[in-house]
Design a protein around this nucleic acid. Structure first.
Length: 295
DNA sequence: ACGGGCACAAACTTCTCAGC
DNA sequence: GCTGAGAAGTTTGTGCCCGT
């Protein structure tokens, strides 16, 4: 199940809120943003696909972009979470290296961070500070939230560096630096008709070698990487504009309606029209809930 | 007009081997 | 160890069609 994340503040794509999961196991969901969930109290379980982690106070769970997950409370000791979700663009714009623990080491990525180490304690404090900043909305809170979030990502980056041997780390960074211009090119040209052959010619690398480099750097195949960017763009247009599906398809860089439908269904598990209806229904429901709370 | 499915050709990925 | 070339298997794009 896909969740469309609407940020309260359009200038700051960061949400933070308290949440008590139900004791019954709900359907897993995913969303196009990063999420961190810190357990404040109680017990329970956190499900990522078929992997199940126990939940204890102080545990921090990292949810990657489009990763299926759901938290569940213990029936007798419901757990309370502080959930933080934010747009990946925030990190990419600031310093792409911050994406490394999430994106460039897919095989080292782990969802549960636990323990009483100095770094863990620092992460917990930073998450609480973001919650307080967002709640108080004191002058300059946007900058404060952004800098706290970036500090969290720096901590994660350093933690992941400690876990991975320096040889693997240096090797990964070197490969990433090698392929970085290609990835930047893809991210600015994905709306156009780019293919691996032309890209290989442009960067003077063989097609097979470029394919391998992209896979090593991103954890995704070339096509999958492009399609992910295009689908994210399509979702933004479906949710935020009245453009018809055909216009959106070609605006995103798809060469035909058929491939757009096939890819959209594969990545989002529903057709573009169904997605637009779901997003509209959800946003209307949220507005109705808010107006009933406000009175 | 638009949304969606199917079959085939084209493009991409993966693997292996060889040269530097 | 890094990179390129080539072959085989897999995936995607294109064109066409049908239903609403």
């Amino acid at each position: 199940m896909i969740l469309h994340i609407a940020y309260e503040d359009k200038e700051l794509p960061v949400n933070i809120f308290k949440w008590i999961p139900l004791p019954s196991l709900e359907q897993q969901h995913h969303h196009p943003c990063f999420e961190m969930g810190m357990c404040i109290s109680g017990r329970g379980t956190f499900h990522f696909g078929s992997t199940v982690y126990p939940v204890a106070p102080g545990d921090i769970f990292i949810v990657n972009v489009l990763e299926s997950h759901i938290a569940q409370s213990h029936p007798d000791h419901p757990c309370e979470f502080l959930f933080l979700n934010f747009d990946a663009e925030l990190l990419e714009k600031e310093e792409p290296e911050l994406m490394v623990p999430f994106r460039y080491y897919p095989f080292h990525f782990r969802n549960r961070l636990e323990g009483d180490g100095v770094m863990m304690e620092r992460l917990r404090v930073l998450i609480r500070q973001i919650y307080e900043e967002k709640r108080s909305m004191a002058p300059g809170y946007r900058t404060a939230v952004k800098s706290l979030l970036l500090s969290i990502c720096v901590e994660l980056l350093r933690m992941s560096k400690e876990e991975i041997s320096s040889t693997i780390w240096m090797d990964g960074m070197r490969k990433y630096e090698h392929v970085r211009p290609v990835l930047q090119y893809i991210e600015t040209h994905y709306q156009k008709d780019i293919d691996l052959t032309r890209l290989a010619q442009l960067f003077h690398i063989s097609q097979s070698h470029l394919s391998r480099l992209i896979l090593e750097a991103t954890g995704r195949k070339f096509k999958s990487h492009i399609v992910t960017l295009r689908i994210q763009h399509a979702k933004r247009l479906l949710a935020g504009t009245s453009m018809n599906v055909t216009e959106i398809c070609f605006d995103c860089g798809f060469q035909s309606m058929a491939s757009f439908y096939r890819n959209f269904k594969q990545y989002v598990q529903m057709s573009p029209e169904d997605y637009r209806r779901t997003v509209l229904t959800n946003s209307l429901r949220i507005r109705a809930d808010l107006s009933s709370v406000i009175g």
